[in-house]
Simulated assay, not measured.
Amino acid sequence: MSRYDEIKHRAVTTLQRWVANPLSRRMPRQVLLETTGRTSGQPRRTPVGGTRVGQEFWLVSEYGDKSHYVRNIMADPRVRVRIKGTWHTGTAHPVPEDDPRARLKSLPKGNSAMVRLVGTNLLTVRVDLDS
C-alpha cells in the first residue's frame, strides 16, 4: 500500500468508526453485517452496502483483508446480515477471484460510488444465507 493509500485509509476509517458507522447502525433500513470479533469474541456490526441474490448476499470490502470485518470473517465465517430490517444467518466467504469493480456495478449505486472513491484494495465477499 502506498503512503497516500495508507493516509487515505486511516482518515476514512477514523471518520467511519467515530461518525458514519454509529449513525448508520441506528438507521432501521441500513444493511448491517455482524461478525464475531476475532480477539474479543463479541458481536461486531458494520454497515455495508450489498445486494441479496437468491440465498446469497454480495458486498465489496473497500480495504480487502485489511478491513476488520474481513479479518473477523477469516477467523470465523459465521455471520448475520440485517437486510430490510430482518436478520439472516449465513457463512461468509472472501472471493478474491471475483472482479470487485465489475461486482460494484450490480450493487447499490451510492455505496458503490463511495467504495470506488475511498477503497484501496477492493475484495468481493459472498455470504451464503441459511434457509
Rank of each mutant, 00 (worst) to 15 (best):
L122Y: 05
L15K: 12
Y4I: 12
P100N: 00
D128C: 08
M27I: 13
H68S: 07
R78I: 07
D128T: 12
V70P: 04
R10P: 13
R38W: 01
V53K: 15
R116Y: 09
V19D: 02
T46F: 02
H9L: 14
T89S: 14
V12W: 10
R78M: 05
N21Y: 13
R101T: 11
H68G: 13
M27C: 02
P96C: 00
A92C: 10
P94I: 04
G64T: 06
R80Q: 09
R45I: 04
T36L: 07
V81L: 05
T51I: 11
K109M: 03
R17E: 09
S67Y: 06
V31E: 01
G119H: 11
R26P: 06
T91M: 08
R71K: 15
A113N: 14
L15S: 02
N21T: 03
S67H: 05
Y69W: 15
K109F: 00
D99T: 11
R126F: 01
M27H: 14
D65H: 14
F57Q: 09
T51N: 07
H88T: 04
R82P: 06
E6G: 02
G54C: 03
I73A: 03
K8I: 14
S67D: 14
A92K: 05
K105L: 10
S112V: 02
D98V: 12
L123C: 04
V19Y: 10
R3E: 04
K8R: 15
G85C: 05
K105R: 15
S112K: 13
T46P: 02
D65R: 15
D76R: 02
G90V: 07
P108T: 01
P43V: 00
R17P: 11
D130F: 05
K8V: 14
G49Q: 11
N121K: 15
V95R: 10
R71G: 08
N21Q: 13
E56F: 07
D98F: 01
E6A: 14
H9Q: 15
A102T: 15
R38G: 06
L59K: 06
G49N: 12
R126W: 03
H88M: 06
L104N: 06
R3H: 06
P100Q: 01
S2W: 08
R25C: 06
T35Q: 07
Q30A: 10
A20Q: 14
I73T: 07
E34H: 08
T39E: 13
Y63I: 02
S106I: 05
L23E: 09
L107K: 14
T91F: 02
A102R: 15
R3L: 11
I83Q: 09
T86E: 13
V31G: 00
L59F: 12
M74Q: 15
V95C: 04
S61D: 01
T124F: 01
Q16T: 00
R126L: 05
M114V: 10
G90Q: 11
L122V: 10
G110M: 10
G85E: 07
T89N: 12
R82E: 00
M1A: 11
G49E: 06
